[in-house]
């Protein structure tokens, strides 16, 4: 069994997938800048100020981050990437979820019927433990297993 963490479930679900880890605040707008401005259909992170994720394809991955930061228009961007089916499958927050991400994932869930499994308050140790490429098992109750 791998290392276990227990967080708070914002949007529940069971999922197993590969981790993409950022130790920097996840800048939603900068990540999907080409989606917003160029109409791109790619889920690749274009935030060149994020050395952890730059040029990583986040589509279908388990995104592990402290919080999201940046543009207050981020909520609409979550909905755009959900519409285009290029969103991460899950978002795991070390800190308390912020209002921009919360609005985005909840509106996507309620208005598009498309879910990004979301768990927050996993703690700083979670981000210290998890590495990009790790296999992550997410359980409905907010238990996260890193293998």
């Amino acid at each position: 069994m791998g290392k276990i963490f227990k967080g708070r479930t914002a949007l529940s679900g069971n999922f197993e997938g590969s981790a993409e880890v950022s130790h920097y605040g996840f800048n939603t707008a900068a990540t999907y800048i080409d989606v917003i401005i160029g109409g791109s259909d790619s889920g690749v992170c274009m935030d060149h100020d994020n050395p952890d994720l730059f040029k990583h394809d986040l589509n279908g991955k388990v995104l592990c981050i402290p919080q999201t930061v940046g543009s207050s228009s981020a909520a609409t961007l979550f909905m755009i990437i959900l519409q285009k089916n290029i969103a991460p499958a899950a978002m795991l927050f070390a800190n308390h979820i912020d209002s921009l991400a919360a609005c985005g994932v909840l509106m996507g869930d309620n208005w598009l019927d498309k879910r990004i499994i979301t768990v927050d308050l996993l703690g700083e140790d979670f981000l210290k433990s998890v590495k990009t490429g790790d296999k992550i098992k997410i359980s409905e109750d907010g238990t996260i297993e890193i293998n």
């Binding site: 605040g25 900068a30 930061v69 207050s72 800190n95 308390h96 308050l121």
Partner: peptide, 29 residues
């Protein structure tokens, strides 16, 4: 990073952005 697009938080603050910090919040139901 957005060529100055409006709404960018240039300080990239780790915050809830609600106006009420949750620094010591613990996971729970």
């Amino acid at each position: 990073q957005l060529n100055g697009q409006i709404g960018t938080d240039p300080n990239f603050t780790h915050a809830t952005h609600t106006g009420h910090a949750k620094k010591n919040a613990k996971a729970g139901a």
